[in-house]
Design a protein around this nucleic acid. Structure first.
Length: 288
DNA sequence: AAACGGGACAACCGCTGGAAT
DNA sequence: AATTCCAGCGGTTGTCCCGTT
């Protein structure tokens, strides 16, 4: 494994004995021990005084993204995924801002999630991930699907601090479940069925809203298409997601599978994209 | 069993803005 | 006011791991 990059800066790093590449256990230990004794900050000085042959930048990144005790490991929960999707609509690629709403998650992790999970879908469907078409699909398929997953779980773990909760509340207002039930996929998220699933302690007990926060432009922009019976016209869609709630298909109570009538969703006056093209993409996804 | 390919994620790079001098 | 230094950010690349052929 080469720890030397091809750039000129790294060759100068090499000249002054700076290490690059993956961190060793010994380096981690040095960094953690130093920070536990002296605190973080002044990264260049810290790197030098800790005896690390690393740049201050590298030390900072290693600490913030990996070694810091409150960094959460493991897969993102559906709640966290939902929050990321919604916040990305509002904030764009401002990963550090988005990360502020997900305690324990780093901007790097969120950025990686977006690139590997979300943009991957856009790529597979041959849609620009910044396009209205793709945003529409997220609003109308992925988010309702995540909400269904959340609702389906017996207990929704808290993912927001009271600070982020109140901030989002004040900015966007609470997301009312009845609005979600009006989306094309109609996932039977009845208001009273989630009354025990609130996840934000700071909310008023009288609130009838689920503790998922909306941008007015997200779910409410889905065309208000009435639910339709699942039948032969339904296109069966499978996305190649893993078992960890990254799928964006929709659920058929009849079959236990997740289904989408995409023609219905993209058709009519609310059509935001070429349904034929997307249908082809969906079929190719099915074959994938 | 080896080669290959893709996914996931850690780490790096360049740039920017703000604080310090 | 100008310059330097540094922390932080977003984009990109590198590496490891695992499944498939």
């Amino acid at each position: 494994m080469s720890f030397l990059s091809k750039s000129s800066s790294s060759s100068s790093d090499e000249e002054i004995g700076l290490r690059r590449g993956p961190w060793t256990v010994e380096e981690d230990s040095l960094l953690v021990n130093y920070i536990s004794q002296h605190g973080e900050g002044r990264w260049n000085m810290l790197a030098h005084r800790a005896g690390l042959k690393r740049t201050g930048k590298s030390c900072r990144l290693r600490w913030l993204n990996y070694l810091k005790p409150d960094v959460k490991r493991g897969n993102l929960t559906p709640q966290e995924q939902l929050l990321i999707l919604e916040l990305h609509f509002k904030l764009g690629n401002r990963w550090s801002k988005i990360a502020q709403y997900l305690p324990g998650r780093t901007d790097n992790e969120i950025k990686n999630y977006w690139r590997t999970r979300v943009q991957k879908q856009a790529k597979h469907l041959k849609i620009d991930s910044n396009s209205a078409a793709f945003q529409h699909m997220i609003r109308c398929i992925w988010i309702p699907r995540l909400l269904q997953k959340i609702q389906g779980s017996s207990a929704i773990p808290s993912i927001q601090t009271s600070q982020s909760t109140s901030l989002l509340d004040s900015q966007y207002g609470p997301l009312n479940i009845t609005e979600i039930t009006q989306t094309p996929q109609v996932l039977s998220l009845e208001r009273n069925s989630i009354s025990s699933s609130r996840c934000c302690s700071s909310r008023s007990p009288s609130s009838e809203s689920m503790s998922i926060y909306k941008s007015p432009n997200i779910i409410s922009e889905c065309p208000k298409i009435p639910p339709r019976e699942m039948g032969d016209s339904v296109v069966n869609v499978h996305f190649p997601f893993d078992d960890n709630s990254y799928d964006m298909d929709t659920f058929s109570p009849a079959t236990g599978n997740f289904l989408t009538n995409y023609d219905q969703m993209v058709g009519g006056e609310n059509n935001m994209m070429n349904g034929d093209i997307l249908a082809d993409s969906f079929w190719s996804m099915d074959q994938f």
